[in-house]
Design a protein around this nucleic acid. Structure first.
Lengths: 160, 160
DNA sequence: GGCTTCTCGTTGCGCTCGCAACTATCTACA
DNA sequence: TGTAGATAGTTGCGAGCGCAACGAGAAGCC
């Protein structure tokens, strides 16, 4: 069957391909920028943001990996780097000796603040500036229909 | 300045974050599927498609890297793998001894055909099924506004 | 209390891939 | 014809990160 059957509509295929390319172009540029100016990767940044955005600025390793797009092993190594740079410190848990917390340090907070400036300018330049406010909202709504695209879904980070 | 200045609108930021997550979730799933069923990565697949979609099914290495999202060095190694698997063969150029061609073999053509089946079903399941035809067209149009998202742009593959 | 099973974080290993440097070749210009 | 500069492809190296396996600890069940 189906030598030429349309398993996927042309528009969907085109949308997916453009998503792939857009992601690649933008992520690469933002990563280079963040890395050259602040010495951190996109994943580092994302992790720090997750910490800052929760009260107490402290999260369990597994929770961090769940909120970002990393596996637990990836998060272990990423946090090792952040700790080495003094952006984060580790804490143990009294009630459960297995768990380990990562907490934003004051220095980490400062560095994140500076990086935010750079990063948001980058997002604006490479991405936001090419949409009207309405288009951005539309795009966000459409992308939200993809399972796993909404923050809080548990798509892969927590797996394996 | 700007402790809380909005460098990027909330909608834009949300759109970017969702794009990031959607890409991660979908790409990971499609890659795993393609790899387990056909032993090839998403990049392999994309490269084979580029070859199939041009008359003569033959392209220069640099052209391949330009059309995919890979650097020339990445393409060198990727094509080495495809050649080892017999999906592609290398040819030299009569008029320019520097250039090297990659050409789809009959076997490569077959394998690609089979992989297409799997891959398109995957795209449909993880992506296309969550949009109406109209939404997909809208999404494609919006993503097309990102510089570099359109095929034929020369965003990064050709660089370095 | 023991036993099984689950979860947490870490580690060894391997893969993909970009960057920078290198060689070989082509092109331009004198 | 000689030489400088651009370009094609390859390679060494290293970063990022997922997977599978592991040890430590927690929780449920008898």
């Amino acid at each position: 069957m189906s030598v030429d059957s349309e398993l996927v509509s042309g528009a969907s295929l085109e949308a997916w391909q453009r998503l792939l390319r857009a992601h690649c172009v933008i992520a690469r540029e933002l990563d280079v920028e963040l890395q050259s100016v602040h010495g951190m990767t996109l994943s580092d940044y994302d992790t720090l943001v997750q910490l800052r955005d929760c009260e107490s600025e402290t999260l369990k390793m597994s929770e961090l990996s769940r909120r970002t797009m990393l596996t637990r092993s990836g998060m272990t190594r990423l946090v090792q780097g952040l700790e080495r740079d003094g952006l984060v410190e580790r804490r143990s848990c009294d009630s459960d000796a297995r768990v380990s917390y990562a907490a934003l340090t004051p220095h980490g907070h400062e560095v994140l603040q500076a990086a935010r400036e750079t990063h948001h300018a980058g997002i604006r330049r490479t991405f936001a500036d090419h949409f009207t406010e309405e288009e951005a909202a539309q795009l966000a709504a459409l992308l939200g229909q993809v399972p796993g695209a909404l923050e809080g879904d548990v798509p892969c980070g927590g797996g394996a």
